[in-house]
Simulated scan of single mutants.
Amino acid sequence: MNRTGPTPLRIALLDDHTVVRHALLELLGEAPDFRVVGAFASSRELMAALRTAPAELLLVDFVLAPGDIDGLNLIRVLSTRFPDSKILVVSGHYNPATIALALRAGARGFVGKNQPLSDIVGAIRTVARGHTYLNPALKVEFSYLLSDAAVQDDTAAVAVSDVEQDAFIGLSPREREVLQCCLNGLSVTQIAEKYGRSVKTISTQKHAAFRKLGIRNDNELFKMHRQVGLS
C-alpha cells in the first residue's frame, strides 16, 4: 500500500553477511519514518518471521549463502507469499540483465552495494511511495535492454528447477548448475561467489555448456529454455 500517514514504514532485512546487516540496521535506525521489524541471515528465517510480524518493505540481498534460495526464485517466492510487501533488492554485483529479470520477477527496485548508503534510504522511500527505483546511472542502459524481446517476454523470467530435460543430458552437473543460475538471473561473478569457484572456472563451464548446446549467448539460452519447457 502507498503510505499517507505518519506511521513508520515497517522494513525487514535479509542479508547473509553480519556486517552488512549491522550497517543497514544502523543506517535505517536513524530515519524516523522507518522501523526495522527484523534482520535475517536466511530466507527461511525471514519468511517465518513475516508470518507473525508483517513488513511493508523487504530489503533483500540477491545472492545468499550456498544452499539458500536466492536470485529470481527468492523474489518470486516472496512476491507470492507476501504480496503486500514491496521488494527492494540489494546486490554487490549487478548488470542490466539481472536488474531487468529481477523487476520482471516482482522486485520494485534494485540498489548496488557500491552505491552510497544514502541511496538505499532514498530507494526505500521511492519504492514505499509506489514507484520503481533504479540507479540513475543505469536508466539509459536499462531502457535499451528492455527493448530486447528476450527480456521483455515474461516467459524469459520463469522459475527454474533442476535442469533435467533431454536437451541437457550431455552437460556435466556443474555445467547444469551454472546454466540454472544464469536462468535465475545471476552473473558469472555472482555464481562464482555463490559456489566458491573462480570467475574463470565459472566462465569456462558456462561456455563449455553453450558449445554442447549449440548456443552462443544468454539470449539463445533463454530461447532454448522456453522451447524445452523448463519449469
Rank of each mutant, 00 (worst) to 15 (best):
E177L: 15
T126R: 14
V160W: 00
P136Q: 10
R129H: 11
L138S: 08
C181D: 03
E141M: 02
V140Y: 05
T126K: 14
R174L: 06
R174N: 02
T132W: 06
D166T: 13
F142N: 03
T132V: 15
E164S: 14
Q180Y: 01
C182K: 05
S172F: 10
A150S: 15
F168Q: 07
E177R: 14
V163A: 04
A149K: 12
Y133R: 06
G185W: 00
T126N: 06
Q152M: 07
S161A: 15
N184K: 13
L171N: 11
D162R: 12
Y133A: 03
A150C: 09
C182R: 13
D166C: 01
Q180W: 00
A128F: 11
F142L: 10
N184D: 10
V160Q: 01
A156C: 15
F142M: 09
A156W: 08
L134Y: 06
A149I: 08
S147F: 01
F168R: 06
L138F: 10
S161F: 04
Y144G: 04
A149R: 13
K139R: 15
E141L: 03
L146E: 08
D162Y: 04
S172N: 04
G130L: 09
D154Q: 03
F168G: 07
H131W: 08
C182D: 02
N135H: 07
E175D: 09
T132Q: 12
A149T: 08
N135Q: 06
T126H: 08
Q180N: 03
Q152T: 07
C182W: 00
A149S: 12
I169F: 15
E175S: 05
F168T: 07
V140Q: 13
T155E: 13
A137G: 05
V127R: 08
C181N: 03
G185F: 00
T155Q: 13
Q165S: 11
S143V: 01
L171Y: 07
P136D: 05
D148G: 04
R176F: 09
E175A: 13
F168I: 09
C182Q: 11
N184V: 02
R174S: 03
Y133V: 08
A157C: 14
H131M: 10
R174C: 01
A137F: 11
A167Q: 14
N184P: 00
Q152W: 04
D154L: 07
P136V: 10
V160T: 13
C181E: 03
L134K: 07
G170Q: 15
C182M: 12
A159T: 11
T155K: 13
L134F: 12
C182P: 00
D162W: 03
A156Q: 12
V178I: 12
S147T: 10
A159D: 10
E175C: 07
L145M: 15
E141N: 07
A149N: 04
S147E: 04
A157W: 01
L134Q: 06
A156T: 13
A150I: 00
E177P: 02
A167W: 05
D166L: 11
Y144F: 06
V158Q: 14
R129W: 02
V163P: 01
V127T: 09
Y133D: 00
L138M: 14
R129K: 13
G130E: 08
L145R: 15
C181K: 05
R176P: 07
